[in-house]
Design a protein around this nucleic acid. Sequence first.
RNA 1: UACCCCGUGGUGUAACGGUAACACAGCGCCCUUUGGAGGCGUUAUUCUUGGUUCGAAUCCAAGCGGGGUAGCCA
Length: 553
Amino acid sequence: MTTSAERPSDFIRDIVAEDVRTGKYKQIRTRFPPEPNGYLHIGHAKSICLNFGIAREFAGICNIRMDDTNPAKEEAEYVRSIMTDVHWLIDGWADNHLGGAPFFASDYFPKFYEYAVDLVRAGKAYVCDMTPEETDAYRRLGKASGFRDRSIEENLDLFAQMKSGEFPDGARTLRAKIDVNAANVWLRDPVLYRIRHASHHRTGDKWCIYPMYDWAHTLSDYIEGITHSICTLEFEVHRPLYNWILDALELPEPRPHQYEFARLNLTYAVVSKRKLVQLVNEKLVNDWDDPRMLTITGLRRRGVTASALRTFAYNIGITKYPSLTDMALLEHTLRDEFNRIATRRLVVLRPIKVVLTNYPEGKIEELDAINNPEDPNAGTRKIPFGRKLYIDSDDFMETPPPKYFRLRPGGEVRLKYGYIIKCDEVLKDAAGNVIELRCTVDLESKSGGPTAGRKIKGTIHWVSAAHAIDAEGRLYDRLFTVPEPDAAGDFKSFINPNSLEVVNAKCEPALGDANPEKRYQFERLGYFALDPDSTPERQIWNRTVTLREPGQK
RNA sequence: UACCCCGUGGUGUAACGGUAACACAGCGCCCUUUGGAGGCGUUAUUCUUGGUUCGAAUCCAAGCGGGGUAGCCA
């Protein structure tokens, strides 16, 4: 069974456990450091579960830190959405390990600047006047900048002028003086500060020099007392620079250490902020919270629960191998949880009318139905039954294939919790579409009745026409038609044209007081959740995931 | 091209020098008033070649394959 174990095992947790054992740190402290330039997605969820998971397993703390060092890209709106999503995901699980209010790298700008001055004083950084193109070219050639050997006094003076706004954007940078010939290009005198006369979402126009990722991130970790700085694989080559910064500043122990793991890839999906932005901007989906998006907000709207997402994160594990996880594993995780908790209801998605010709006009019966066969405490409810019903058009075929167990002309089927019916007549419109089935009921076959035990292969769901509640059903499918949409060519050309189907559903009356927090199984169809756009007059149901379907349908 | 990292069934992971396991997916059977769930069974794995060792998925080397980096983005 796939349930969330208390202590997952992976190479990072092994390291943390060892550090705890040796008493290397007083307390374990991790961090989740998003840049507020977009919405969080399922890959971030993996990282959040890792960092907060470690905090809760080792009695530690996890900080949320906005890595807001690039004023051109970042917005307060993203800060808000990030906090909403993280809180939702860790609520009741690791929220008591959260390091207080969100931290902001921008709050450390003054400290970053002081450290930079220290670095210059130590002769380990210099102001460089080369253009970005020249810098690139020199770096590629392993050639030293002509400004590399400026005096400390001149560097100090120039850096102060950079800060006070004496120079235009891009005119100068502060660079670390490391090794222009290093095999690792990130050690070839990396840029630490650049000039950007731009308004920052928090510091406004106070600064016109902004720290680069490596400088800001390393020092933020140090300032916050982070012990284990966990990031994705693309930062692996930055680790020597991370350590160089700590060494160059001669920062006292305890110091943070960086570890890297593989980001999440999923079949039939894209999981990268850049691509998700495109889907939104090019209107290929409705918005960031479109239920087809693997953003946390989209998943939430679709009906995915935080606990299921956490279980999924546990199931996929943590390694350094850049794997591709089967979307079926996510779907399995969802079904596994929902099967246990979902309230069962009868809903017809694509109705056909059925008239029971031998059932008395005006007669209504109340049938007993089980709310959740997996949970006896969920109890039962009554479902009204009458002469006119709706069944799903999928459950009737005029000329069915061999293994079709449902209704056919002259055939019998059992109505869940009700009677066995037989199809006598098929009525069609001028276009030849089936519009009504006229059936007869075996009046003794009701649950508990004399012929209730008759062996009938198929059981289908139904709704009383007189009592049905009309509702909108939004049936989602995977957003892409191929397992690896970004493997070759333009991923947007593989968008599934049928990723959303809207239907007018007929729901049993018990759904009238449906709870948006609850999960429902529409029997034989799938798991559904109420969309926030629902109104008291009209419900909108999002299909989170279908029931598992056998090979062919 | 250079540097770094990673290679365990179809997929995701475990095994921490002692003879490969769990989950997903697939297939078959049983059960079923959800073609769901559940039960039982089953297919299938250590990239290659050397080396170290009594013993290697595990340690070493080379090769092959995959990924990452080479922004004044993060």
